[in-house]
């Protein structure tokens, strides 16, 4: 009996505490609003003199800490927080090849306090191959900062010196060339590459960049499909690039041929973009794009990117939207052709 009474009291307490919690918070949040922005929030909106930013900003990164996308986000957070005078926190929200984090960005409120950095075309590949909660139009693309082509690399002591060796061997032994990748874009690149050189290859999926590198350098796979960022480490360990899927030779690696000059029309790469959920107030967008143009055209930012082996290319709000739309129309047919490889 005692126990039952006690449980009832406890249950009652739960309700009371919950109710108290909600009450005090309504008040608290109401007060905070009043204190911070004054009672004339609505007027402010109409006067188009929204104060932004008034508090800390967070940047969501849909990958784990330490990779290329994360590095870009952290450099940007540093530069942008100096420009805006507010603290900017980078939040890693990894999982399901970026899907979890990108969906979270799309869900968050379009007030300019939650931004996101991810490597395009991860979002586009995801939305076309899975049933995602976001689409290309879920985001306002504020700027793009780098342009990193995908490449094909051979391990140490590989018989494949050039692309011709590869084609020759591949035509004689269809399906016997193994190509490692770690991520949707890497796989897409392999499929498009094999298509265009007319050789049947076998893609091998790895769970992360580290495992992929280990298998390439240990000759457990013949080739690897990864971005130009891995170039230095692979070459240093005795491997070599076969070519980059870039429009022209990269300033950083002038010796590496592009597939285009080798006669294969293949361009594919990662471009880290800074996004906000669609529906950003015009004033906030104005503040952000101005700030981004300022830091984006500053040579200091370019230097920091290039020190980190990230090929810098700044595109402001209008340029990036146009660039991405053009790129979508190139990628879409490639994805559709190979859709069964993704969906199995």
């Amino acid at each position: 009996m005692k126990r039952i009474v006690f449980l009832l009291v406890l249950a009652l307490m739960l309700v009371v505490v919950a109710a108290c919690g909600s009450d005090t918070n309504q008040e608290a949040s109401g007060n905070a609003d009043e204190n911070q922005q004054g009672s004339n929030v609505e007027e402010n909106n109409q006067d188009s003199t929204v104060e932004y930013p008034t508090k800390n900003i967070q940047i969501i990164v849909p990958y784990s800490a330490g990779g290329g996308g994360d590095t870009v986000a952290r450099i940007l957070a540093d530069a942008l927080s100096e420009e805006l005078g507010k603290q900017i926190n980078v939040i890693n929200r990894e999982g399901a090849g970026g899907e979890i984090g990108i969906a979270e960005m799309a869900r968050s409120e379009a007030d300019g306090y939650t931004l996101g950095v991810f490597g395009y075309p991860d979002n586009f590949v995801l939305e076309n191959t899975r049933d995602t909660d976001f689409s290309f139009d879920s985001f306002e693309y504020l700027a793009a900062f780098d342009d990193m082509p995908m490449g094909i690399f051979a391990g140490p002591g590989s018989d494949f010196e050039t692309i011709e060796d590869l084609i020759e061997f591949g035509e004689a032994n269809p399906g016997s060339i193994t190509l490692g990748e770690s991520g949707a874009l890497g796989l897409l690149h392999i499929l498009a590459f094999s298509d265009i050189i007319g050789v049947q290859t076998t893609p091998v999926t790895f769970s992360g960049g580290g495992e992929l590198m280990n298998s390439l350098l240990g000759n457990h796979v013949d080739l690897a499909s990864t971005s130009s960022m891995s170039h230095d480490s692979i070459v240093d360990a005795g491997g070599h690039p076969i070519g980059f899927a870039a429009p022209e030779r990269m300033a950083m690696f002038p010796d590496v041929p592009t597939f285009k000059e080798l006669g294969f029309d293949l361009e594919m790469g990662v471009s880290r973009v800074l996004v906000a959920p669609t529906g950003l107030p015009e004033e906030v967008k104005e503040v952000l794009t101005t700030a981004l143009d300022n830091i984006g055209n500053d040579p200091a930012l370019k230097e920091r990117f290039e020190a980190a082996a990230l090929p810098y290319r700044y595109l402001g709000n209008e340029d990036v939207t146009e660039f991405l739309n053009r790129s979508n129309s190139v990628l879409e047919p490639v994805i559709q052709q190979n859709i069964d490889r993704f969906k199995n």
Partner: peptide, 15 residues
């Protein structure tokens, strides 16, 4: 030695 980060922690150190 190889630039191969084998764990989340070493990946961040690589970063």
């Amino acid at each position: 030695a190889l630039g191969v980060p084998g764990s989340p922690t070493t990946a961040i150190i690589a970063g």
